[in-house]
Design a protein around this nucleic acid. Structure first.
Lengths: 110, 110
DNA sequence: CTCTCATGCAACTCTGAGGTTGCACGTTAC
DNA sequence: GTAACGTGCAACCTCAGAGTTGCATGAGAG
């Protein structure tokens, strides 16, 4: 389950506008596509596409309230992606540590 | 420094091939573009472009060894991006927690 | 009932990133 | 020396996706 989810999340986060949208929603709470669109130099439709992309990745969710749809951040939606980043980073750090230990304490590689 | 760096990192990580390359280098250690290219269904030049993209984001670095260039993971290169993910996630969690506390313990909204 | 406003759907344009091929250059090996 | 191999540069092709516009639909407000 996780692997494909990570794929989608990174693909979604690859676009600057989508990261801004996610950031805005995370700090100001749920908003509608029309409200969000006001803050960007692009059309509402473009914003909707981005929101759908984020929703498809499981990072956002939209709930209908009568005539408008309110988008909110999904708790834990970024977890897998964050875990992947940390894992890759740590894996490399372990390699470095192991290498340094192997070479002995006299190494001062940058 | 961090903000633009995060931009570049996410842009770089947006591509599946680049994540695979990064993953492979993190787990198997430094390799040359030609070596890496062998494991992918694309040309060496394409791989080089991806490596340059990752290097530009500060996630990889290439060092020349005579006639070939060996690419390695840069320690801490993913740090800012990971921090951003965690921050956005936490920020939202805090909002949720605050909201729940504000509404009192008797809330059972779906 | 009617008007308004936000959403949903679809067709369309166009830029850019991923990919390729071809060749020149420098380094290693023989 | 020369041959072989890896890299670097540049021109080129192609297509996904970011963006647009226009219109139909449905829910609220008067």
């Amino acid at each position: 389950m996780s692997p494909p989810r990570v794929e989608a999340v990174f693909a979604a986060l690859g676009d600057p506008t989508r990261r801004q949208l996610l950031d805005e929603l995370s700090r100001e709470g749920p908003k509608t596509a029309t409200e969000l669109a006001g803050g960007y130099p692009i059309s509402r439709q473009a914003v909707v596409k981005h929101l759908n992309a984020l929703a498809g990745a499981g990072v956002l969710a939209g709930e209908r309230h009568g005539r408008d749809v309110r988008y909110r951040v999904v708790a834990g939606g970024l977890g897998d992606a964050a875990a992947w980043l940390v894992e890759v980073g740590d894996r490399w750090d372990r390699r470095l540590t192991a290498l340094q230990r192997h070479l002995g304490p006299a190494t001062d590689q940058t």
